[in-house]
Amino acid sequence: MAETGTRPKLAVWKFASCDGCQLSLLDCEDELLAVAGAVEIAYFLEATRAEVAGPYDLSLVEGSITTAHDAARIKAIRQASKRLITIGACATAGGIQALRNFADVRDFISIVYARPDYIETLATSTAIAEHVKVDFELRGCPVNKHQLLEVLAAFLRGRQPATPGHSVCVECKQRGNVCVMVAHGTPCLGPVTHAGCGAICPAYDRGCYGCFGPMESPNMAALNHWLARLGVDQPTIARLYGTFNVNAEPFRAESQRHGG
């Protein structure tokens, strides 16, 4: 094992998010010691108050950009990072909070906060890659912890991470699930959704919610046509796409087109 100081320095940063993706790293109970042995955890406030100054060999970034302050902060982090990897739907697509992009954010502020005048925010929630160069994007809401470890391992070995961009269906069938859409008539976004979760929801007889965003070659029109045949109405189709990846094309376009 490498001596302290020679291991790559890892930083974990938070922007507008729920912390769930960072927690996925702490949730790697069995592998956490191996991670701590392989990298020097230099900045990870969710795990420790201790901070080691940059530059950092690898920054993991969670969350989206929703304030002018954060827009400036991500630029500083990018400058202090040799490699920058975004983790989770907020960082890769703007997250659920990107629903503000399709409404007037001031309306939300007036409803949510007792003193709206205290709130300084941007009109939009956007992905990190819209602000700085990103070396790799790891999808998911939240990210899959095995994939997160895969990304770290690939970084350490200097290889490409194996995070296939095909549909959830491939994982679903590998797992031996019965297709919920074909066998039960349950609407499912699996055919247009990026793999990575291991097809959790269909394993429990639920349709895929699209947490990992669009797959590599999504045929939205074909799926929507079939969803309509299953009796799913237009507003429901808009809501199906209008969740954690609402700002990721073509989920954004479909959500808007169906009245989201």
Partner: peptide, 25 residues
């Protein structure tokens, strides 16, 4: 076509595979 791959997964003769590196921390 959704290019989802379901037809190949359920086909009893489709045999193609890929090889992945195991997690190697």
């Amino acid at each position: 076509c959704l290019t989802c791959g379901n037809c190949t997964m359920v086909c009893p003769t489709c045999f193609c595979t890929t090889v992945e590196e195991d997690l190697d921390l």
